[in-house]
Design a protein around this nucleic acid. Structure first.
Length: 569
RNA sequence: CUCCCGGUAGCUCAGCUGGAUAGAGCAUCUGCCUUCUAAGCAGAGGGUCGCAGGUUCGAAUCCUGCCCGGGAGGCCA
């Protein structure tokens, strides 16, 4: 509809002026302004040095008459308001009602190949609440992208090498010694959580006493983690085995937590794989490219990427003095590999603490001669938990973090997902546990689900009373729904496509949450203001047709959020 | 010091690609269950859109400066 009005206006304006302007058509906020509105007259008035209202008059008189258009009016300073005919304004609704599947009104004409990378937290412990937000967001965005007709791959980048991995290995190693009755001092910079003990138990089950220290006395004298690592590396040639084992155990736990949270990754990309050659390792290939294009320099014994050439504040270390590549270096190679795999769009979802990291990655992408415009990075701000009006303290260091699993156990998957998604990603989030667990209208999730369940219950009641819903009769009589609350729902349902389009364009999810809340509210109003199971069959069928449209729309929205739509509550 | 995010009703937040009287929910107050799910609905009160300039026919929205809150600035990841 929007496009029809747009092209009609464009055609008309071309008759009046040579000037080329983009015509904007928007939905009106209020019925008295019609269905659609455009401000072209006001914009054009400036160029042509004419009075906006006169110009609008001129445009309207040469629009011609169209059967889908009831009338066109000038209003305010020079808005052109379009009032659609009844048939035209109901066309969307009818299409929605008659469609077999859940109707998704916005689809790309040419599908895009999209890679979305999210969560990607270090496999050194359980996934916690902060990661949960990114997980919910990434999975919902994926749903939106897929439903919009694209091919999407969801990827998790596993940091399975470097310092943190060694620290994980050491932590497990120490807890493992304890299982043999050896009392050791456990350094502060090791991972304190009890989950390490569980991993140690699994290690013992798989490897028995393979990693047991023989020279205990000498080891006990060491109390500093770096020294411990040196000792271990000297005495256990295959310590890597232990590290890899520990990482695998953690990844398994992360994966199962995510699955429980309805988050699924198609590929798990190991950082270490960048260094393993099938032919030539990715990392080597990438660093050679950078060297060949003169983007690396040597200083203080280390190799630096000249990111300041690309707008970053300063150059960044690429390969350390000790010969080890930095995390950043791996990440460049990783991004290089993403591009190599041939996608139309690369989406990264990062924690807000990484924002300073983006300029250098962009710089590297540019240095490699890749198209930086297809790389979109979305930052997700932090989450604070609030219980009884007070901040719940969370510190990863002290092992006091709240795990995603415990959050799910407390508030449920539906509620947790909704609360994570109902806020703009780049806004920090106060997660109120009391509201999230409430089972009344304070909790928007229950409110929306209740609307859905109520509709299902009405459908059951209809059958119970020996009546049937006649879809054809319903669609033919939609015009009978002329009560204010009814026509408001009808136009609101139509605006669902705008919400999706907007969310898709901005790569945001929260508009859908707000929309569902509002739609549910309008439904509850409708439900309370009149008897749905009407004596008059024409009216009754029209109302049930509308209910079906509401139901499908709620279902479609909840599907994007991966939140369940219960038929009974 | 530099960069990022935010400042809108008592509270939590939408709105921000400039548009018509600035919106929800919660909380407060007043009503509504012999009738399809009261896990609900109707109504009322509540605003210097952080401050000051600028651009514009028109600014919560764009630009500049400032103030306040949070975060980031490793040869950590």
């Amino acid at each position: 509809m929007k496009k029809d009005i747009q092209s009609l206006l464009e055609k008309t304006i071309s008759k009046i002026t040579e000037n080329n302007i983009s015509v904007e058509v928007l939905r009106t906020k209020s019925d008295i302004h019609g269905d659609w509105t455009s401000n072209v007259a006001m914009i054009l008035a400036k160029d042509l040095k004419k009075n906006p209202r006169d110009l609008a008059d001129e445009i309207i008189s040469s629009l011609g008459s169209h059967n889908w258009l009831d009338k066109v009016e000038i209003a305010g300073p020079g808005f052109i308001n379009f009032f659609l005919s009844n048939d035209a304004s109901l066309s969307y609704l009818k299409k929605l009602i008659k469609s077999k599947d859940s109707y998704f009104p916005f689809v790309e004409e040419i599908p895009k190949k999209i890679l979305i990378e999210y969560v990607s937290c270090n496999p050194t412990g359980p996934i916690h609440v902060g990661h949960g937000r990114g997980a919910a967001f990434g999975s919902a965005l994926t749903n939106l992208l897929i439903k919009s007709g694209n091919d999407v791959i969801q990827e998790y980048y596993v940091n399975d090498r470097g310092l943190q991995s060694e620290t994980l290995g050491l932590s497990v190693f120490l807890r493992y010694q304890e299982l043999f009755g050896i009392e050791i001092s456990f350094p502060e910079d090791c991972y304190q959580g009890d989950y390490i003990k569980d991993t140690a138990i699994e290690l013992k089950r798989s490897f028995q006493d393979k990693f047991l220290i023989s020279d205990v006395d000498r080891f006990l004298k060491i109390d500093e983690s770096e020294e411990m690592k040196k000792f271990i590396n000297k005495n256990f040639k295959d310590f890597d085995l232990l590290i890899n084992f520990s990482i695998e155990v953690e990844i398994k736990k992360i994966r199962s937590d995510l699955e429980k949270f309805r988050v699924h990754h198609d590929t798990w990309f190991n950082e270490s794989s960048l260094y393993k050659p099938p032919k030539k390792s990715s990392f080597l290939k990438t660093s050679e490219k950078l060297k060949a294009t003169d983007n690396l320099s040597i200083k203080d014994g280390a190799s630096w990427f000249k990111s300041s050439d690309y707008g970053d504040e300063k150059d960044r270390v690429f390969i350390r003095e000790n010969g080890e590549p930095t995390y950043f270096a791996s990440d460049i190679a990783y991004h290089d590999s993403k591009y190599e795999r041939g996608f139309d769009l690369l989406v990264n979802i990062w924690g807000a603490d990484h924002h300073g990291y983006l300029p250098r990655i962009k710089g590297a992408v540019e240095a490699l001669g890749l198209n930086k415009d297809i790389l979109k990075t979305i930052f997700i701000q932090f989450v604070s938990l609030i219980r009884d009006g007070k901040l719940v303290s969370m510190s990863t260091r002290a092992g006091e973090f709240i795990t995603l699993r415990s959050l799910i156990d407390e508030v449920g998957v539906d509620s947790a997902r909704f609360f994570f998604l109902a806020r703009k990603g780049d806004q920090s989030l106060d997660f109120d546990l009391n509201i999230a667990t409430a089972e009344d209208k304070n909790n928007p999730v229950y409110y929306i689900q209740y609307a859905y369940a109520r509709i299902c219950s009405l459908e059951k009641e209809l059958i119970k009373r020996g009546m049937n819903f006649d879809i054809e009769e319903g669609c033919e009589n939609l015009l009978q729904l002329d009560q204010p609350q009814e026509s408001e729902i009808i136009s609101f349902i139509e605006s669902y496509q705008d919400i999706l389009e907007q969310s898709y364009r901005d790569l945001e999810i929260h508009p859908i949450c707000f929309y569902l809340r509002d739609l549910s509210s309008k439904f509850h109003t409708f439900y309370n203001s009149e008897v749905i199971i009407d004596e008059d069959s024409k009216k009754r069928n029209a109302k049930f047709a509308l209910l079906l449209a509401i139901k499908k729309t709620i279902k479609s929205g909840l599907d994007v959020l991966s939140i369940s739509a219960p038929e009974k509550m």
